[in-house]
Design a protein around this nucleic acid. Sequence first.
DNA 1: GCTAGTAGGTTTTTT
DNA 2: ACCTACTAGC
Length: 816
Amino acid sequence: MTLILDPDDPAGWREAPTATSGSRLTEGLNPEQREAVEFRGQALLIVAGAGSGKTRVLTHRIASLIESREAWPSQILAITFTNKAAAEMRERVEALLGEGASGMWISTFHSACVRILRREAEAIGLSSTFTIYDSADQRTILKRIIKELDADTLGFTPANAQVKISKLKNELADVESYARNVNTNDPAEVMFLEIFRQYTRRLRDASALDFDDLISETVYLFRAFPKVASLYQRRFRHILVDEYQDTNHAQYALIRELTQPIPADRVVEMGEHGVNVRALTDASGGIPGASLTVVGDSDQSIYAFRGADIRNIVEFERDFPGAKVVLLEQNYRSTQNILSAANAVISNNFDRKEKKLWTADGDGDKITGYTGYTAHDEAQFVADEIEALHRSGVAYRDIAVFYRTNAQTRALEEIFVRSALPYRVVGGTKFYERAEIKDAMAYLIAVANPLDELALRRILNTPKRGIGPATETAIASFAEQNALTFRQAMRAADGLGLGPKVTAAITGLADLLDEAAAMLVPNAEAIAAGTNEGAAKVSDVLVFLVERSGLIDALRNSRDPQDETRAENVEELVAQTRDFDRENPGATLVDFLTQVSLVAAADELDDASGTVSLMTLHTAKGLEYHAVFLTGLEEGLLPHQMSASEPGGPAEERRLFYVGITRARKRLYLSLAMSRAQFGEVAVAMPSRYLQEIPEGLIDWKQSPGMATSRGGTQPRALNARRPGGAWGTRDRDLERYSVTKSAAPRAEWANRVTGTVRDNGDLTLEAGDRIRHVDFGEGRVTQVTGEGTKRIAHVSFDTAGQKKLLIKIAPIEKL
DNA sequence: GCTAGTAGGTTTTTT
DNA sequence: ACCTACTAGC
């Protein structure tokens, strides 16, 4: 067990606190913001509407605590949602204080927990070099377990087992507590218990933790070892948590543990062990709990699927008696038109505290709306508008395009490439998910954590060494029979009775890994001093591994043309480790692996890049742009089909829309398509129900849903017209109840009401050879007809407009 | 043990 | 439409 040596212990501070007023730090703040910066007490909840300057408040609050000498930097723990937000917050605090801001912990929940767990690993029987398993790793393991247990017969899949395990861990349930509550008469529950048990055992045997473990194991650590907890309780006197509405139960419990007071008897004991406690004790001799500041907005809670519990913020005042609540409603980001749209949309969620964003900066431009015929048409609109914005002086990096699902990037990317628009997909980065990168990483992991059987099995026959599944199983059972680890069994491959070639391949790999591990040992003085001096750099070890293992040569010499790209990717990974070594002198291999494991999508954002950013609505949280495009605003996409069956689903989808709207500073564009391809099939899409919640006067439709379909069809379908029993013609049984009751009475005075009719060509039949006329594309000849029923598509070669695919049922066409 | 071809599933969001 | 994972044949 390690004691934390705190170089910045306040007891060593001798000068009297200077009475510099905080005026510099509260200057230019509104009264509520100022109150949030200046409040001193155990608990503070800042209810911060979108764009209300909460980061400013948080950074000024931290700076004010430090400047007034109420706290040392090392006594601050600030939790943010992404590493990028953490880096930004650190920068801003440093800008306020100059030097003297170092020693603060500003990080994500996961990074902070890894830091604690690596330090205290021994206490809970874990190697300090434990591996962090991502969801692909989890699935690989669950797949093996389910296969071995034949659990698929009871409906278990790696995916659903993973979701279930994650949910349990977020609720701080472990195998034992689950076992106590299991219904032994239900074979599925009994089977799941076994899956959960084996999964837990395998991770433990490999000295690995999954994402959820990082939080829950830290909580267990603190609960099982109160003395360890007290070290952190003593250290962190001021804890600040951003995006509190998206914390789950485990994260809540972690915060509770960290803010517990330390009883007097333990303080005495800590003092005897050399921990400096004098300056911190209260009248009773104990150390009071740390002060807690949380910032959140329940209207922006969008991570319920990941266990985020909105109650954490709603019930904050109950959980922390005497808590002060500050409400920030003035918005400094967006125009009033954008805010009015956001307010109107979110007010349709019941069961929320009324909150209205406002700005003193004026109405601004209207929101621009557009309805495309297809996703490509929509994408073309986005591309054209971006070009127009760019011509008017808006930089590409100030423009973002949001969507609900990652699959929607395809059409956007195709058009952007064609339009030569510089763009970047944020979070779509599958770099570390590529097989060849995972292979190379597995070599590094196997070196850092020899217990990691998953990594070893991955590289066992990569590149091909003639070690097949049979041999792999032989090594595994040899290990089990002799109580060896997989790695030890590999070293002892001579005793397996395998062929000489295979045996040499196995021991050769084991030797290679041992040699790489030896490169990473620091020199003797460095070990004594706790530094990493003398250890090989990460990039050197990686180069050694990919060259000596033959991985890179196998790719370079392959006949498969794709392997050339794969080799380049591995070289790119090497380049990344070089960057890492340069930027983090003295950092270890484990540091590199941790950093790679914990990158968030938004971390990839490069503010200096001259590109348009494409990302999901989830990734967009916390960001802001001059111009924002919200695309795919269709039923089934937003709200997403899958959300309909979940309680609270449509309300959360509305919050997602709200988050998207409030990212825009000056210009907001809302777009959708009338038809969208899914699984290669084209389907008719309906406008999102949320669109009609925006008041009429706020949107300027360049092409409204009505216009896009009002080309002489026969079936009326105004944007907000109701057909009996169906809102917008969608599955009303899936709608939220209140939404259905609301829509029972059509509101003719409503907004963006667009009179018009849906184009419906009825049972118009076309076949190859037919001549047709299209409203936009003119005359052409049908070359081919594909699809069935309402999804029949005519492939048309137009005389002037070229090749097009048209949905026969709704396309504005007529047969000649 | 390796490779090529096919069948089947897939798209909700992520630390 | 695409990607993965299994199977048949070498």
